[in-house]
Computed example of a mutant assay.
Amino acid sequence: MAYEWLDEYCLNKQGVIKDYQPEWQATRYFIGGKMFAMQGGDKNGKPIFTMKLEPLFGDYLRKQYKDIVPGYYMNKQHWNSLYLDGNVPDDVVRDMADKAYMAVLQTLTKKVQKEISGLDNEPSAK
């Protein structure tokens, strides 16, 4: 399986937590209580990593790579699944993970964004 580094890459992002959803047999990645990625399998058990992306970017990637498809069992406009046995370059996969994380981070309140970044812990200037 390719992309063994992807779990650690997502977990190294500020404020990310993961859990396991037994009913879906999937590992989910959250920021601020909202999911931005999920690792599981398709209906045939092939391993996939699904990420939330801006619709135009996701559509572009699906046209470029046969191993990126509309999000399996997710909203097909916003979610994209990457087959983990595929041949998408690592830098493209990192960019997908970065953009998925940022897409969800930007939907959070400014207060939560500051808490996640640690900026609210800095002493205020006087």
Results as ranks from 00 to 15, higher is better:
54 E>P: 03
37 A>R: 03
47 P>Y: 09
59 D>V: 02
86 G>R: 05
33 G>K: 08
75 N>K: 06
105 L>A: 09
113 Q>T: 12
82 L>R: 07
96 M>C: 15
84 L>H: 10
4 E>R: 14
5 W>I: 11
39 Q>V: 14
8 E>G: 00
54 E>Y: 03
17 I>K: 13
25 Q>W: 05
116 I>T: 10
18 K>M: 01
72 Y>T: 01
14 Q>H: 10
55 P>C: 09
115 E>L: 14
116 I>Q: 06
42 D>L: 06
14 Q>S: 12
43 K>P: 10
52 K>P: 00
44 N>M: 12
10 C>H: 01
15 G>N: 07
54 E>C: 01
41 G>I: 04
35 M>T: 09
65 Y>C: 11
42 D>K: 04
59 D>A: 12
111 K>Q: 13
63 K>Y: 12
22 P>F: 00
51 M>E: 09
60 Y>A: 12
90 D>W: 05
58 G>Q: 07
125 A>N: 07
18 K>R: 05
59 D>K: 13
9 Y>L: 05
114 K>Q: 13
109 T>G: 13
20 Y>W: 01
105 L>E: 10
107 T>G: 06
23 E>R: 04
49 F>L: 10
37 A>F: 04
54 E>L: 02
48 I>Y: 09
17 I>F: 02
42 D>Y: 04
5 W>Y: 15
28 R>P: 01
116 I>C: 08
70 P>E: 03
9 Y>K: 01
5 W>H: 11
54 E>M: 02
102 M>C: 08
102 M>D: 14
8 E>C: 00
56 L>V: 12
109 T>Q: 07
33 G>V: 07
100 A>M: 09
77 Q>R: 06
10 C>V: 03
55 P>W: 10
68 I>V: 15
109 T>N: 08
69 V>D: 04
36 F>V: 04
103 A>K: 10
111 K>V: 10
105 L>V: 12
66 K>N: 15
90 D>R: 13
35 M>I: 11
10 C>D: 02
29 Y>L: 06
27 T>H: 06
22 P>Y: 00
69 V>Q: 12
116 I>L: 15
109 T>P: 11
81 S>H: 08
25 Q>L: 08
53 L>D: 06
59 D>C: 03
64 Q>L: 15
36 F>S: 03
90 D>H: 09
94 R>Y: 14
21 Q>D: 15
79 W>R: 03
126 K>F: 00
69 V>P: 02
123 P>F: 08
99 K>S: 11
116 I>R: 09
101 Y>N: 05
114 K>H: 09
40 G>D: 05
122 E>P: 00
79 W>I: 02
78 H>R: 06
58 G>Y: 04
30 F>R: 10
122 E>D: 09
46 K>F: 01
27 T>S: 11
54 E>A: 04
102 M>N: 13
98 D>V: 13
84 L>V: 11
70 P>I: 01
31 I>S: 06
64 Q>K: 15
94 R>F: 13
102 M>V: 13
79 W>K: 02
40 G>C: 11
47 P>L: 07
38 M>L: 15
53 L>V: 03
90 D>G: 08
72 Y>A: 01
19 D>C: 00
21 Q>H: 15
25 Q>P: 03
9 Y>N: 05
113 Q>C: 12
77 Q>M: 02
41 G>S: 14
76 K>E: 06
46 K>L: 02
111 K>N: 09
16 V>K: 04
82 L>M: 08
126 K>E: 02
43 K>F: 13
63 K>D: 15
5 W>L: 11
